[in-house]
Design a protein around this nucleic acid. Structure first.
Length: 575
DNA sequence: GCCGTTTTCGGCCCGACTGTTTTCAGTCG
């Protein structure tokens, strides 16, 4: 079993316990453990073998045993017992907006409901009206929620929602009804996927601002609408919340709703130790029974109150950022303006849409000092892959474009396919003519773990390969990452001075943040590249930089922050 | 179930909104 599978069972355990109305803190313990394991970069099997399971925060004796049994036998006694009481299919019901554990318990125990289909039928039969606490509106809303769930039951890609969030923010500001407005939640933490869109605002006319928000053209359904808060579902199917708060609470509210939940709980606990109460309205000092407000206008007030420097939203996952803040060891995170070049770009020489010159001009407008054109060298026909025969013309075309344009350097590069056996689609004689060689897998992505690891290692051993593109080949919400032994990969990368890519395209974001952090800790250099196939996509760089920040990367960890000369020098065999 | 620079027991974040209620339970974030 892998980390994801273990996490899933822990989540399911928590869900079942919740329906059984177990102790809330016990439920949370399972959920917290699940989250931690989900975020772990290292294989839980390896951690268990070393006997370090209980060293993971949030995992004690009980859950450690639970996990060990799962790893050894594929299941465990406790989980089997729970499943007998509440079958897993019942848990699907919890995904429906408006259905929590209490209602699901009634549905399952009194009506034997264990699927959405059965629930729909029951709701339409109006038998639930006889149950205390269930009225007509509940029925109607649940039917609507089931419809929405069936249509959009997934998290959304950050890259798809980010522009929408900016658009709505802009409209709110333009309305004249709000003074300050900010997107918070997982979007502000730049998580690779987002579940909903949280906006905070201050306003002199809260009711009118709420009204305006619920009437935006992007709104499809209103779930709740009060005097300070509205909750809607947008056309795309994603939920959006607007909360209007008082100016003096704005910082505290932005902080609170940015999360993550785990991070917030840590901060509040630190506050409690100092006799402070920290909530979305501000920071309050307890004086007898009274609470005296001591801050909350600015977000940094919160951190200051618990003796911490401001922690960047991207780090707020309770993955060591609080300890790092306390010991003054927070990283000086890389930022978008540090990026000097984009070294993974496609043109109409393979499957890109624009010419070399067009891409270079667009990159120059962004302010880059250099780019590398890296079209596909692949046998795949649909990608219009470069075969050895076309390479001379291709390199010449890049050199010509470079001569034509001033103010930006165009490097001649390639994204060459790594074949199943780890050799490359182009011979070394051609590779050595290029300024920069990016190698990547594009076929046979589901090999056994060992073979895949060896395949990438062999590519890294090639003296002409500078960079491994999108190392795991995952597509978020679409394709699982290839199975690799990441520890071996980073070890070899360090040995051979091969750079690992953080692919900035929001469907890839590959390496992910945890892998980037591990690579950094091992002294492996990385590069953030867009893989742009059109000039409009050069600006996905911001998602790549955000991912790097989530991986605690600093400027010095990322080679395309270097000026051209030093950049070329760090490529292996150029030193 | 987890955790501990006061604690191995007793805490563990908390307010807004909805629907069905005569004062609150359930859900959500």
């Amino acid at each position: 079993m892998n980390n994801k599978e273990i996490a899933k069972i822990l989540y399911q355990t928590a869900d079942i316990l919740q329906i059984k109305d177990a102790n809330v803190f016990r439920i949370n313990a399972y959920r917290r453990a699940a989250q931690t394991i989900e975020d772990l970069a290292e294989d839980i099997n390896l951690i268990t073998e070393r006997g370090n399971l209980e060293k993971i925060p949030g995992i004690g004796k009980g859950i450690a045993h639970y996990i060990q049994d799962l790893l050894e036998t594929g299941t465990c006694h406790g989980f089997e017992e729970l499943k007998k009481q509440v079958p897993l299919t019942v848990l699907d019901l919890l995904n429906i907006e408006g259905l929590g554990p209490k209602k699901v318990k009634i549905l399952f125990q009194k009506f034997d409901i264990n699927s959405l289909y059965k629930l729909q039928k029951l709701l339409k039969s109006h038998k639930l009206l006889e149950v205390e606490g269930w009225g007509e509106k509940t029925e109607k809303n649940l039917l609507k929620s089931i419809y929405f769930y069936k249509r959009y039951n997934q998290r959304f890609l950050l890259g798809e929602i980010y522009p929408l969030a900016q658009e709505i923010l802009e409209e709110l500001k333009q309305s004249g009804l709000v003074n300050r407005a900010e997107v918070s939640g997982s979007i502000r933490r730049w998580r690779e996927t987002v579940g909903d869109l949280d906006i905070l605002a201050t306003s002199k006319k809260p009711e009118k601002a709420i009204e305006f928000f619920t009437k935006l053209k992007q709104v499809k359904r209103i779930l709740a609408k009060g005097s300070t808060k509205a909750q809607v579902i947008l056309e795309k199917g994603i939920g959006a919340d607007l909360r209007v708060v008082k100016p003096k609470s704005f910082g505290a509210a932005v902080n609170y709703f940015t999360g993550s939940k785990a991070h917030n709980i840590r901060i509040r606990r630190l506050g409690m130790q100092k006799n402070l109460r920290i909530n979305e309205y501000g920071i309050f000092k307890k004086s007898g029974k009274k609470l005296i407000r001591i801050g909350g206008t600015l977000e940094k007030d919160i951190f200051k109150a618990v003796n911490l420097p401001l922690i960047a939203p991207e780090l707020r996952e309770d993955q060591g950022e609080i300890e790092a803040g306390q010991s003054k060891k927070l990283p000086r995170l890389i930022s978008l303006k540090d990026i000097r070049g984009d070294c993974h770009i496609h043109t109409n020489w393979s499957d890109g849409y624009k010419s070399i010159l067009k891409m270079a001009q667009a990159a120059k407008e962004i302010g880059y000092e250099y780019i590398a054109i890296t079209d596909h060298a692949t046998p795949i026909r649909v990608a219009n892959g470069l075969r050895p025969k076309r390479m001379t013309g291709y390199i010449k075309a890049i050199k010509n474009a470079d001569k034509k344009i001033k103010g930006i350097k165009i490097l001649a590069g390639i994204e060459v396919d790594i074949k199943k056996d780890g050799t490359l689609f182009l011979p070394d004689e051609i590779l050595k003519k290029l300024d920069i060689v990016v190698a990547g897998n594009h076929s046979a992505l589901h090999m056994p773990k060992n073979e895949m690891t060896q395949r990438i290692i062999k590519a890294m051993e090639n003296p002409y390969v500078h960079i491994i593109a999108h190392p795991t080949n995952r597509l978020i919400n679409k394709r699982e990452p290839s199975k690799i032994n990441f520890n071996q990969i980073i070890k070899k990368a360090r040995e051979t001075k091969t750079i690992l890519e953080i692919n900035a395209f929001y469907r890839r974001l590959d390496l992910n943040s945890n892998q980037a952090r591990l690579a950094k800790q091992s002294g492996v250099k990385m590069i953030i590249s867009t893989d742009a196939h059109h000039n409009d996509y050069l600006d996905v760089m911001k998602f790549g930089v955000a991912q790097a920040r989530r991986g605690w990367l600093e400027k010095k960890d990322v080679v395309n922050t270097l000026p051209l000369k030093s950049f070329l020098k760090t490529l292996k065999n150029n030193q």
